[in-house]
């Protein structure tokens, strides 16, 4: 009896079920096909301001970046709000796969050449596979190629080297809001004094709010854990807008760092947004800066059509 019951039910209700879809939902006959939906475009580009974002350059795409950080705006019109003095970085990023990207860059400040690789370990997704966060690992090396201050001394090449390891953990909460945390380690082969640590740990936090389809508001802050760097240095805070126009992303921002390399903006930022000078005068270390990103598709995806 137990076995025949389901068939009896099928007998009774089968015809009704099919009669129902006679005049309607044909697609429902197929049932819902579940797919994995990856979160995309959590940020407009692969940088928030100075540091990296959750996003990668897509496979086969070359991203040419021109970035400037100007002098502090505090001198006003005399030096055009800092625009007279600029540090510049040119960079090229390339996506090897959708999860792995590499990049190189050169900065005018200390003539630093940097190179990095970033890999998406986890990708935020919904649907068939549910993954609440994206997790990326970034490794970045910086070589300071400026001449040693005392050339007659015995200088080592290794003294020029800096390394950064960073985890980026974040989530695109909705179309508007994305947040990420970035535990970071900056290793400096050579430091000035014994009190300064070779390994500097910092915790970064960043986010973006989409203001319109093409404009987002970004903020980024790196907190250096205490007693690691000289007290002359401070934490970097940056706030800016991403404006996307077709093939370009313009990132316009205010920051208190003139560096665009990890070791620079994390361990060598000299002035706070607001601070008191040695004479007790209220001053501001806010600088204007921008990144321009232009992408070129180098390798087209195969087997598209």
């Amino acid at each position: 009896m137990k076995k025949t019951l389901p068939f009896l039910i099928a007998l009774f209700f089968g015809p009704f079920l099919f009669a129902q879809d006679e005049n309607g939902d044909l697609l429902s006959l197929l049932g819902e096909e579940s797919t994995v939906e990856y979160a995309t475009a959590s940020f407009k580009t692969n940088r928030v301001v100075n540091g990296h974002s959750l996003e990668n350059t897509a496979a086969g795409v070359l991203d040419f970046k021109i970035s400037h950080r100007f002098s502090p705006v505090r001198n006003g019109i005399y030096d055009l709000f800092g625009l007279d003095g600029a540090t510049i970085r040119f960079g090229l990023d390339y996506g090897i796969t959708d999860r792995l990207m590499i990049g190189v860059g050169r900065s005018t400040k200390e003539k630093i050449i940097d190179g990095f690789a970033k890999y998406k370990i986890l990708r935020q997704s919904a649907g068939k596979r549910n993954m609440p966060v994206t997790l990326s690992y970034l490794v970045d090396a910086q070589i300071k190629t400026v001449k040693f201050p005392e050339e007659e001394r015995e200088n080592y090449f290794s003294s020029r080297l800096y390394y950064t390891h960073q985890l980026l953990i974040g989530r695109k909460f909705n179309d508007q809001l994305s947040l990420q945390l970035m535990p970071t380690l900056v290793h400096r082969n050579l430091v000035l004094t014994r009190a300064e640590k070779n390994d500097v740990f910092a915790l970064g936090a960043a986010g973006r709010i989409k203001l319109s389809k093409r404009v987002t508001l970004n903020a980024e802050y790196y907190f250096v854990l205490p007693d690691q760097i000289s007290s002359d240095y401070t934490n970097v805070l940056s706030v800016g807008f991403d404006i996307e126009t077709g093939g370009h992303v313009f990132q316009l921002h205010f920051t208190n760092s003139s560096d665009m390399t990890y070791k620079g903006f994390i361990t060598e930022t000299t002035e706070d947004w607001f601070f008191k000078s040695a004479e007790g005068k209220s001053m501001s270390g806010i600088r204007f800066g921008f990144n321009i990103s232009r992408v070129f598709t180098i390798v087209k995806p195969r087997g598209l059509y």
Binding site: T40, A58, A59, G95, E244, G247, T297, K300
Partner: peptide
């Protein structure tokens, strides 16, 4: 009846695909 997922449209240029969706 036909149904296509918008996110499953593939473009030659990744950025176009992003803008198409976003």
């Amino acid at each position: 009846e036909w149904k296509v997922l918008i996110k499953s449209f593939l473009f030659e240029r990744a950025l176009m695909q992003e803008h198409f969706n976003e």
